[in-house]
Design a protein around this nucleic acid. Sequence first.
RNA 1: GGGCCUCUAGCUCAAUUGGUAGAGCUGCGGACUUUUAAUCCGUAGGUUGCGGGUUCGAGUCCCGCGGGGCCUACCA
Length: 508
Amino acid sequence: MRRLGRVTEDLPEQMQVRRDKRERLLAAQQDVYPVKLPLTASLAEVRDRHEGLEPGEITDDVVTVAGRVIFIRNTGKLCFVKLQEGSGVSLQAMLSLDRVGEERLADWKADVDIGDHVWVTGAVGASRRGELSVFADAWGMASKALRPLPIAHKDMNEESRVRRRYLDLIVRPEARDMARQRVAVMRSLRNSLDSRGYLEVETPVLQTLHGGAAARPFVTHINAYDIDLYLRIAPELYLKRCVVGGLERVYDLNRNFRNEGADSSHSPEFAMLEFYQAYADYRDMAELTRTLIQQAAVDVFGGTTVTHADGSVHDLGGDWPWVSVYPALSEALGHGIDPQTPRQALLDLADEADLGIDPAWTEGRIVEELLEHHVVAHFTGPTFVCDYPVDNAPLVRDHRYEPGVVEKWDLYIGGVELATGYSELVDPVIQRERLLAQAKLADRGDDEAMHLDEDFLEALEHGMPPTGGVGMGIDRLLMTLTGRGIRETILFPLVKPDRGASERGELQ
RNA sequence: GGGCCUCUAGCUCAAUUGGUAGAGCUGCGGACUUUUAAUCCGUAGGUUGCGGGUUCGAGUCCCGCGGGGCCUACCA
């Protein structure tokens, strides 16, 4: 809510001072927000061109550069300013009485604040202390800032960093790095897939049915048709339509929306890569997934050994071990179990481990719970867990040898489930049965279960080639590579509005 | 959903058993032609998240609401 009447009166002094300066400059016919500046170089270019100047040396390279003022030091007849540009590169400029004259030096001291964008024209040289600098002959305002920057040598608290990411980006190099690393990881994934003949496609965000995962959707409404729509929870069913249609290697690097809890590893809006390849099985897809992740680590961090924010070192290189659900669980329990183990035996095991079991859960769900507790919790390096019970994987084909399990793996790195891969179920009859069972669950009020997608089933009935598929969380991949929380890997994670502040008019 | 913690100046943080809300940086005025968390002198800045209550007196104690964090539960 804007409360215009209160804006100027209650303003903290520092903001009022800056507004006054703006007014004064405008009144003096000075352009405080010029539309275009005659820049001749970026700060980075100046740095590249003039490495290693001797202290006191001044070149005849005259440049016009601009940047945000991030540091300022005014003395009687000589002013220092550190300018920063978008890349994070900074460069010092020096304004001396000799070069800019008495009037413009006085103007500089009176008009410029930390946070403003300014331009300077002058020769490139090095200060007596040896710092590369522009010795300004002229300067001007490029954009007047009306609010102060947070102080540079103390981090803002986490909430402020998220709510005002632009300040975080100005002040904290790690924030800029993350923004670039995220893009670099996605570019690496695209390059890896493109070079293997994959086609990047876009699947719809607005869907009349939500499918491809078990998650509660966001609901919206289309006025033109007067029906409710769901925001995508997974692109899977559309990518499979692509495979049926002959686009045999497809991926969608997409945004999904799940109306569930938000915590340090879950964001309601999150990025995911799904890719499907005809004539591949889940083992092929696991190999490809490992390659994609390792290549991303190499492309972005220079190697498969990555260092986290806390200084810990993690080796993602080489082959990654496989662990099969039932054998691994049997070993951990010291008690043989398999898909035929009766429900009561599973419940007893869950009781022993003090796991809270919902009576509605299927046997497979209970097995997965036991698995998390007894096996997954002890992983150290990257690990593929494979051959899951059929119950919770309606879109996966049965294992080719082992009865009661499906050809599915989950990839765990650093305790986080990073990706999942399948040999996709392509038998349209079995697929229909599985989805029908899910739909019945939905009728019983389980709104995470899928509704029957007849269009998808009809597509399958036209014949889908044997196919492998993978879904991988991009935010989680960034977390795995950097050791940062999910809210740091996303530039603008969802935050609740700060109602108190807006009611007081502080957000203007 | 449950539990615990937290919200104080533009920013980062103090404030003893309930007793005049402080500091650093930033800002403002001044000195300084080599600063870079400059230094020196002077100075300003607050509805302590919001609303109630207890009390002679509340940043502090109690209740409600809002934001955030952690744990837990839920979770393809």
